[in-house]
């Protein structure tokens, strides 16, 4: 009867270890065995200039904010905006800036973000450039200097993490999102300045 008992103990231990997972809900280092799931994500944009029936630009209201005639109502997006993986997967997000001069990315509740993320070429090979504080490689666009974690139009960065804990995580571009005191994501800052957001995507980790 010793053998089965031993097996049971081993399997119970394995099952518990699998349930517990490692410390961080999303950890920056993938284990060698974790299946790699790569997603290509582009930054997209919706925009419109509301017009009267006659075709003339009209003043309008966006989420209770009064906007002048001819002002662009715009919203940046991640495309795809929902990423679905399984717990234990090694998730690789290749994020390519198409719309918007620059962005950053951070995943709520974790240390995963674009700060220091490698810029890669079309094959996914690192170019040696990283998303750290630097002068803007696109001199024709603002800002002249980029801060930690920001990357610009035409650049493609890689976020890599292991999904250890099930749930839905908000992936946010803070440049285009204002975060309220309770974590509300807003498209206008405290002074009512439009941020073309909130710019958010969702990473769902299935149990």
């Amino acid at each position: 009867m010793l053998k089965p008992a031993l097996f049971l103990a081993v399997f119970a231990a394995t099952a518990i270890a699998a349930q517990e997972g490692s410390a961080a809900p999303l950890s920056p280092n993938c284990s060698a065995k974790a299946p790699v799931k790569e997603f290509l994500v582009a930054t997209g944009e919706w925009d419109t200039v509301p017009k009267e029936r006659g075709g003339m630009p009209a003043p309008y209201t966006d989420r209770q904010q009064a906007r002048a005639a001819n002002s662009k109502l715009e919203r940046y997006t991640f495309d795809p905006g929902v990423i679905i993986v399984k717990r234990g997967d090694c998730v690789v997000l290749r994020i390519h800036v198409v719309k918007g001069s620059h962005h950053n990315v951070t995943i709520e509740g974790t240390e995963i973000g674009s700060e220091g993320a490698p810029v890669v070429d079309d094959n996914g090979a690192p170019t040696g450039v990283k998303a750290v504080a630097r002068s803007n490689p696109n001199p024709y666009e603002d800002p002249a200097r980029l801060k930690d974690g920001e990357f610009v139009r035409g650049e493609q960065i890689v976020l890599k993490f292991q999904a250890n804990q099930a749930g839905t995580y908000r992936m946010i571009c803070e440049v285009h999102t204002f975060i309220g005191p309770k974590g509300e994501l807003r498209g206008y800052d405290e002074k009512g300045k439009p941020l073309s957001g909130p710019m958010v995507g969702y990473v769902t980790v299935l149990p």
């Binding site: 809900p25 995943i107 709520e108 509740g109 974790t110 804990q165 099930a166 749930g167 839905t168 995580y169 908000r170 974590g183 980790v205 149990p207």
Partner: peptide, 11 residues
Amino acid sequence: LPSWFAGETTA
């Protein structure tokens, strides 16, 4: 299922 915003609960 875990509560909707996993990030928040984890934090």
